[in-house]
């Protein structure tokens, strides 16, 4: 609850500052001051082109810090409270510099355009490498370009872009191996059932069970062997990986680190 209040306060502050500067909130809000004036103009122009072409809001927000808030929740709030006037939908790219995190959030309409992790990765795999290199303008322009491509695909096909599924060679080979193994084991059991002729291994049936008496036992320690198996690292997702932890029924997209 406390976190939510912080987020709402930050978003309200952003909204107030933007409102005092312009009548409508611009699609590029560089609160982290990452862009030069010329870069800002270039990015702004590219975002506007996409927005006008598809009647959507395609925004970029940079923040130096959002406190302890999660970028995903913050970005969702931006969609709900700030960038919510696109007739055909809204999308925002949020970059938080102190956390070195990014997040792409969409509203319900554009959730059908930027479909799940594959859709988000289609944008992030092209844009995030620029963030790593410190070329924020390049990242935002690439973001705008990829949104353009996804919108074009959606308009042409009536559905969001999805990567073509590769032929599942691994599943086929695995299934064949399993089939051979099971069939071989089954054959062995069937053949074994056709004969019950076998030699006895021991004379257990003729051992007088009450006669056994342990007369001597002596255990000697020999040596110790130590092996170490490294545990798989958790919580260190690769820079290119996408988390959809803040995605819900009304929002799409995902984010990660850079």
């Amino acid at each position: 609850m406390k976190k939510l209040l912080i987020i709402l306060t930050l978003v309200a502050a952003l909204l107030l500052s933007a409102a005092t500067a312009l009548a409508a909130t611009p699609s590029l809000v560089d609160k982290a001051h990452l862009l030069t004036a010329s870069e800002r103009a270039q990015v702004q122009a590219q975002l506007q082109t996409v927005e006008q072409k598809y009647s959507i809001r395609c925004a970029v927000v940079t923040m130096g810090s959002i406190g302890n808030a999660k970028p995903g929740i913050y970005a969702n709030q931006l969609i709900d409270k700030v960038f919510n006037d696109g007739p055909n939908g809204n999308i925002v790219f949020l970059q938080v510099t102190d956390q070195r995190q990014w997040y792409i959030s969409t509203d319900r309409k554009l959730k059908d355009v930027v479909v799940g992790i594959p859709g988000t990765e289609y944008i992030s795999k092209a844009a995030v490498p620029y963030l790593k290199k410190g070329d924020e303008a390049g990242a935002y322009k690439t973001y705008a370009k990829r949104v353009d491509e996804l919108m074009a695909y959606y308009q042409k096909h009536g559905k969001g872009w999805q990567p073509e599924k590769e032929f599942p060679w691994l599943a086929v080979v695995g299934a064949l191996v399993a089939g051979v193994a099971v069939a071989s084991a089954y054959k062995k059991s069937l053949i074994a059932a056709m004969s019950n002729v076998c030699r006895e291994v021991s004379a257990d049936a003729y051992l007088d069970q009450g006669s056994f008496n342990l007369e001597n036992e002596h255990d000697t320690y020999l040596y110790t062997k130590v092996t170490s198996t490294p545990k798989p690292k958790q919580g260190h997702r690769g820079a290119g990986s996408v988390s959809t932890s803040s995605s819900d029924g009304g929002h799409g997209g995902g984010g990660g680190g850079y």
Binding site: S211, N213, L214, T220, T227, S228
Partner: peptide
């Protein structure tokens, strides 16, 4: 935390006992 350490100790165990078998065919 970072790894799973498995320590295996080996022993030599000597056992001696008497028993009775009856009519092994």
């Amino acid at each position: 935390g970072d790894a799973i350490m498995t320590s295996t100790s080996f022993y030599n165990c000597q056992r001696q006992g008497c028993m009775k078998f009856e009519r092994i065919p």
